[in-house]
Amino acid sequence: MLEVSGLNAAYGRAHILFDLAFEARAGEVAVLLGRNGAGKSTTLKSIIGIVRPLAGEVHFFGRPIQHLQPYQIARLGVGYVPEDRRIFTDLTVMENLEIGRQPPREGAPRWTPAKLFELFPNLGRMQDRLGARMSGGEQQMLTIARTLMGNPRAILLDEPSEGLAPVIVEQMVRTIRELKTQGLTVLLCEQNLHFARQVADRAYVIEKGQLRGSGTLDEVREEYQQV
């Protein structure tokens, strides 16, 4: 359902991605594995349209989306959860959720604040708290919940486990499994192998903006440990 082919991207003169190709099939969790600076975040930004690719195509349900604006891509049902969370710190939890809200979408799970508070009970207890006054883990939950308010069909998660306490990471694993159960397609960027293997159906290894290997997580494990 989400297919990327021949993707090239650059910041100014620095060429970051070289002919990347991969896919995430409906209802599965695909993982992009790579070290710091491998180009994982740039890949996700290129899909959501924040970074304009130099070349290449991104298809979502067979439709090319690489020329669209980020808001148009989001409105097609692609949810994006950035690495640095980017919570609106001046806004409360409820207001943050409001920013992500989109009309219900056919073929996608339908989320409401009440449903999200079941998934993230912590958030339910701090509905009027300002984003600036939340812990890192709480912010990470909020940023996922905010994106889910758009009722996406696919969700791009950029290193959700980064900088979180082990307990919270375990919770994140359960969350991703739950999202998959609900029928969401997940494209996940990770460098934490332990985390990735608990959720991944399919894995790709990226190094210096190029694809190094693909397959099941166990198949690419060795390649990843070499990069």
């Binding site: 924040i50 808001y71 989001a74 994006y80 950035p82 609106f88 207001e95 920013i99 992500g100 989109q102």
Partner: peptide, 14 residues
């Protein structure tokens, strides 16, 4: 208010 703080992120949220 959201766009005042981070308009790119607001755009990525639709």
């Amino acid at each position: 208010r959201a766009a005042t703080q981070d308009r790119e992120m607001a755009g990525a949220l639709g």
